[in-house]
Nucleic acid binder design. Structure first.
Lengths: 130, 130
DNA sequence: CTGCGGATTCACAAACTCATCATATCGAGG
DNA sequence: CCTCGATATGATGAGTTTGTGAATCCGCAG
C-alpha cells in the first residue's frame, strides 16, 4: 500500500470527544509512544533507524507505524528505497511533553504520600511521651 | 473501597514511555474523555451530575471513573452522602486542549486534501495533450 | 525481466477492554 | 439495628487489539 494513503473514516460527524478518544488510542501503546519519542527527537527518521531504536522486527514495527498513520499522528514518505517517517504535527510532541509533566507531578505526589507513610515505622526512634 | 485509594503499581521502575502509554490508555475511551471534559468545565462535580451529563447508568459510569482514578487522572472525595470528582491536575485539561488543537489541524488538512481531489474529476474539461 | 533488500499486509491465536447485570458497601435517618 | 439512596465491585460474554510468521509489494541494480 502507498504509505501515504491510509484513511480512517475521516469525514465523520462524530462527537468531538469520540474523535479525541480515538486519537488517544493511537498513543495508548508503549511501543508507539517510544516510536513517537524517537520521531520527536529528530524529524525525518528512516524505518531502518526506528527498527534499530526499538529493537522490533520489521513486521511488528510496521504494524504500529500503520496505526500511527491511521490516527494521523505521523506521516511517511518514500525516497529511493527507504521510507522516512516524521510527526504529522508538532502538537504531537507537545502531547508527549504535557504527558511527561503530568507524570512527574503524579510521581512526586505519590512519593510524598509514600515517605509520609514510610516515616511511620520510624516513630519508635523519636521521642516518645513518657 | 475507599474512593481515594486505588493504587496501580506505582513505585515502578518501568521505562517512561511505558508509563506514558498507560496514562494515554486512561484517556482512550470516548466516555472517559467526555467525563474529563465535564470535569474540566467546573471543578468538583458530583457523580449525580456526571450521570446526568453522560446518560450512563451508575455501574457503568462508576467503572469508568475507577479507570480514571487508577490512572491518576481524577481524584474523588466523599462529603455527606455524595462523592465529588475533579481533575487530579490542571495538566489533564491541558492534554485535552492540545488534543483538540491537533484534531482541528488534522481535520483542516484532510479537508484541503479532499477539495483538492474533488477538483480532479473536472480535468476532463481542461486541455488534454493530443 | 529477474533478483533483492526494505517495508508492508495477511491471518490467526492470545490478551485485553467494554457493556451489562447482579451484588456489595457506605453513610444518613428512622 | 435496618433500610434507603448513592456508589462501587464482581462476573461474564462480546468485541477489539496485539504479537508472530508467512506471504506480498515496491524500487532499483544487474
Amino acid at each position: 500500500m502507498n504509505p501515504q494513503s491510509d484513511e480512517l473514516d475521516w469525514q465523520d460527524a462524530r462527537p468531538l470527544y469520540q474523535v479525541k478518544a480515538d486519537m488517544f488510542k493511537g498513543l495508548a501503546h508503549p511501543l508507539r509512544v517510544r516510536i513517537l519519542e524517537v520521531l520527536a527527537g529528530g524529524d525525518e527518521v528512516p524505518v531502518t533507524e526506528l527498527m534499530r531504536a526499538t529493537g522490533l522486527e520489521p513486521s511488528h514495527l510496521s504494524q504500529h507505524l500503520a496505526v500511527l498513520r491511521r490516527h494521523r499522528l505521523v506521516v511517511s514518505e518514500r525516497r529511493a528505497s527507504f521510507v522516512y517517517y516524521r510527526l504529522a504535527f508538532p502538537e504531537v510532541a507537545q502531547l508527549l511533553t504535557v504527558a511527561r509533566r503530568l507524570l512527574v507531578l503524579a510521581l512526586e505526589e505519590s512519593q510524598d504520600r509514600l515517605s509520609a507513610t514510610e516515616s511511620l515505622p520510624e516513630i519508635g526512634l523519636q521521642q516518645v511521651p513518657g
